[in-house]
Amino acid sequence: MDWSSILSNAARSAIGLETVIYALAAIGLNVQFGYAGLLNFGQAAFVAVGAYGLAITVTVLGLPFWLGVVVGLLGAVLLAVLLGIPTLRLRADYLAIATIAAAEIVRLTVRSATLREQTGGSSGLSGFAEGFYALSPLEQGRSYGFGPWVFSARLAWILLVGWVLIALCCTVVFLLMRSPWGRVLKGIREDEDAVRSLGKNVYAYKMQALVIGGVIGALAGFVFGIGRASVQPDLYGTELTFFIYTVLLLGGAARVLGPVVGAAVFWVALVLIENVLIQAVGAGFIPSAVMDSTQVGQVRFMLVGLALMLLMIFRPQGIFGDRRELAIDAR
């Protein structure tokens, strides 16, 4: 077994594209679910709106890249407001149902055959990322980085921008959540009627949280679309939302860095397990009667699921969570 390649792949994935995408999406979800207690089960829709907003504006409408970014962000704001107006006054579970449905509506709409001209149908869109790479100060053809973290100029550029976005978002979340505004949000998570009785407009705060989290989700969508240089509707299904939740709970909800650490751990674990299995199957340590190399993809998710269960049993508050807080929940 080639341990050096296994370990270097794992190390690369700690800061890789998937980690950036999931970290951003989970930072957004953290604002909504972790701090405000909003059960948004449609984070994938916000990611999709970001990615498709950019792709459609640039590829279909032929407009400049920056305008695509603006459209993606506005699209996320619009989706949040549309979802929030009817549901945020109702019980928490209504938002969960509405968002899960909305996410599927978004995915099925962009994938529909009637809209093939506009959205590319089930095969999606591509050719919108060049405007982004044109902005790169890095020299094409060279590679950047050190140790196991050496990336092509293109990948290095998107990773750089992605990590700057993560740093920015974390700073914003940190500043917001230590402010009285963040305190109101946490109060709403605990008991919104109590907060209402103290004269706070709970509805407005929930809407603000939903919009902010959605916009950060759209940022994840930009990185997702640009990193792959294409958008495909089926990458934005409900399992994306569930993985984002996994990442958030893994790192610890309502912690500023929880989503980032959660995303890195999640992807390192996934890549590590996958590489070990592939090598073990290849070297014959695992007989083909048990598993062959095509089954590794599924088995790694099973093992990650098992690891998550163990984590939730032995450290239910996540990596960064506070056990003291969790104990209170049980009362």
């Binding site: 402010s179 009285p180 505004w181 305190r183 109060g187 706070k200 603000q208």
Partner: peptide
Amino acid sequence: LSRLTVIENMRLGATGQVGERLASAM
């Protein structure tokens, strides 16, 4: 508000807080 400290519960009660507005919170 269980997972807020006692003093944070109290601070939340104050009205007209500038820091509770999104625009000035940061």
